[in-house]
Design a protein around this nucleic acid. Structure first.
Lengths: 212, 212
DNA sequence: GCCTGTGAATCCATTCACAGCT
DNA sequence: AGCTGTGAATGGATTCACAGGC
């Protein structure tokens, strides 16, 4: 990464995936070049924002012209690490878990589940796509290094989530995507992203209630 | 709502659900009173933040003592509209859609699905819990007013999401929870919340890649 | 002494506006 | 002329620090 001396704001990182989606469309449509103005419109943000965000990482654009679509997309993917493959494990194979496991968006973007854990005896031993077998979470410790698992996805009931997270961390996983509606305590060195539908719903409800 | 003259920052709204979860725990544990300090620790935020957030809506605390757990929780629920019931419809009954439909967290928090739409003929007519029948999305227009649907949940493939959103809006839905990884264009009067797993994953990947 | 509520200070992100390159 | 890259200005949100009440 080019300019790590200037610290990059978290919101910038969160917008990069936003930029990459319309860029993929433009690439497909064989549009060679895009200006910060049109890209901004496609993403619903301010053009100066787009320029500033991209400038954190290098000078990708050409003054008077714009950004070359293909190379910009490649740069963004490099920054986000989307050019690599990532190996995930899933803990919790309930409704949500299995929906995530079967979700094509993940694989398409380079995120592959290589292990699945669930403590329900009725599920243990079940054979899924790619020969993955549902195993008891106590196997996490051993599986993480063996399968080079880099990211853990937690889709368990909330009261089990903290325990599972600790198992993942102590097995060497440094990044966790948490779908359980609780606040996970984590070691300094690790990253946790929370996805909580009900927070979004409560947000909607608040705004609806306010609209009268 | 008590103090609407001061505009309430969006981040404050997003933190209220965060506060409510530990409060529910404390209520169950019959802890009568909580200080901004301990609540802050439970949520991983700054204590002053907690006080300021709550103070936007009234003087809920007692100086020298703290906040009464039960009444604070009740107030937060009132603010968020979580004390009411909300009626949702689901569009897109694939893996993710059915996981959402069967998710207990929703119902427990007062969000009930009252209709399900999918354009797949193999799914139309299927009878789900509570006698809900999967219908073609063209029925949205008619169903929204009849069933008093307030919130639409989109779990379709991305290329259908915009069209579905427009059908929902024109049928009178003012709030949409969107799981498709696209930017939805919406009328001024409506609210959209996006839930995009892959953004979270790309975020994790970025931070992992940075950790060396 | 303890803890809330809140102005003031700080920090951070967004937007503006223009210099500089093509 | 067109569009990027960026310092400066603006606008918000977070945190500090303390006055005020229990």
């Amino acid at each position: 990464m080019l300019r790590n001396h200037k610290k990059i704001p978290e919101p910038t990182i969160e917008r990069l995936p936003l930029y990459s989606r319309p860029l993929e469309e433009l690439l497909k449509a064989e549009v060679p070049v895009v200006s910060s103005d049109t890209l901004a419109k496609l993403c619903g943000v301010n053009p100066a924002q787009v320029r500033k965000d991209l400038a954190y990482f290098g000078e990708f654009g050409v003054r008077g012209v714009g950004y070359e679509v293909a190379s910009l997309l490649k740069e963004i993917k490099k920054i986000l690490g989307t050019d690599r493959k990532w190996r995930l494990c899933l803990v919790g194979f309930g409704n949500l878990g299995s929906a995530l496991f079967e979700n094509h968006n993940f694989r398409r973007r380079g995120y592959t589940f290589v292990a699945v854990f669930d403590s329900d005896p009725a599920k243990i031993g079940r054979i899924l796509e790619n020969g993955i077998v549902v195993e008891h979470p106590k196997k996490i410790k051993e599986a993480v290094p063996r399968l080079h698992i880099q990211i853990g996805v937690i889709a368990t009931p909330p009261f089990k989530a903290q325990r599972v997270a600790e198992m993942l961390f102590s097995a060497g996983v440094r990044a966790v995507l948490n779908f359980a509606p609780i606040q996970i305590r984590k070691p300094e060195c690790c990253v946790v992203e929370n996805v909580d539908f009900t927070i979004s719903l409560e947000n909607l409800a608040y705004h609806l209630a306010k609209l009268h």
